[in-house]
């Protein structure tokens, strides 16, 4: 009878759920990582860490800000030991709630002071520069492009710009703009770009692809997306990076970083992972596989990428790029975000 089959199915279901609820792991050192960085980009180096140290890493992948939101909701009951974020802002938000522990000085000292938190609660693991990616099939060469981000408010750029206002790296850049040039200058810049009818992309990858497809001539993104497309589609991919210079805010160098949860029961193992990612193996991985900037001394960058020392980024304290709420408010007032 259908009825009996249904009841049986329900019974089977309840027992499955009960079983699932009591399954447990099998001992051995193990840490839980919340990673806002993409699986394709970080899982290989994490596997290598486990192979080298015997420490198992359980990873929850997600969007950086969503995971920060999860950490805030979890509070002291978070199962996470470690938070790996795309940008300093999300780490700052979790740190502000008092949920991160202060890292030991020797770990912090592995990277230059400007790439770690002032309060020592997070450390940068890899660097990324803001760039202007441009379509190099049009009559546009690196030399034609301005050396500062303000120049793009000129009416000659009407309809030619792509950007990603929802992207965390873009928002960090706007926060840096507000910090360096002041609120009104930032507002004027945003309004100037708005007047040029920029194309809004959902993510940096789409912006770079849109640029290569000629939907726009330039887009404001991070430097490494281009290298992923070049690796996937070859040199024919018709976009290239243009680095702004002279300490322009558009040349901001931000970091992806990590912090250890105050509520963690495995702080030492979590710290071992951070140290591993800052070791030669870890830093070379970021340099060659994710095309980012290594932050520790003596590691060379991927081919085609100008070295970190040659860049002319603005002087800005990344720890101060945590006023995301102010940036969002400005983006909304200027109509960039709804």
């Amino acid at each position: 009878m259908c009825g009996r089959a249904f009841l049986l199915a329900c019974a089977a279901l309840v027992s499955t759920l009960a079983l699932a609820a009591c399954s447990d792991d099998d001992g051995g050192p193990s840490i839980t990582l919340y990673s806002g960085r993409n699986e394709a980009l970080v899982q290989p180096i994490i596997d290598q860490f486990t192979a080298d140290t015997g420490i198992e890493v359980e990873v929850r992948y997600g969007d950086t800000t969503e995971l920060a939101g999860v950490l805030l909701e979890e509070g002291d009951n978070s199962p996470a030991d470690l938070f790996f974020a795309q940008d300093a802002g999300a780490l700052g938000a979790v740190s502000d709630e008092g949920q991160l522990m202060t890292l030991p000085q020797p770990v912090l000292d592995l990277v230059p002071a400007k790439f770690r938190a002032d309060n020592g609660q997070w450390v940068g693991l890899s660097g990324r520069s803001r760039v202007v990616v441009y379509n190099n099939t049009a009559e546009l060469t690196d030399a034609d492009l301005p050396d500062n981000i303000d120049a793009f408010t000129d009416p000659s750029w009407d309809g030619r710009i792509g950007w990603v206002p929802t992207n965390a790296s873009f928002q960090s850049f706007v926060t840096a703009y507000r910090l360096l040039e002041g609120e009104e200058a930032a507002r004027a810049w945003l309004e100037g770009i708005q007047d040029n009818n920029p194309t809004v992309y959902p993510n940096n990858g789409a912006a770079v692809e849109g640029t290569a497809n000629g939907e726009v001539d330039v887009a404001f993104v991070n430097h490494y997306y281009l290298f992923q497309f070049l690796a996937e589609q070859g040199e024919d991919f018709s976009a290239r990076n243009h680095f702004l210079s002279g300490g322009d805010v558009g040349a901001l160098v931000n970091v992806a970083g990590a912090g250890i949860l105050e509520s963690s029961d495995h702080k030492e193992d979590a710290q071992a992972l951070i140290e591993y990612l800052l070791s030669k193996v870890g830093q070379e991985y970021f340099a060659n596989k994710t095309y980012e900037y290594p932050l520790t001394a003596g590691i060379s960058v991927t081919e085609g990428l100008p070295p970190l020392e040659s860049l002319e980024p603005p002087e800005v304290d990344l720890s101060n790029l945590d006023d995301l709420a102010g940036t969002i408010a400005l983006l909304q007032e200027t109509g960039v975000l709804q």
Partner: peptide, 13 residues
Amino acid sequence: SRVIYIRYTSFDR
């Protein structure tokens, strides 16, 4: 829903 998402990205719960 997009407006809500943007609020979350700025930790404005």
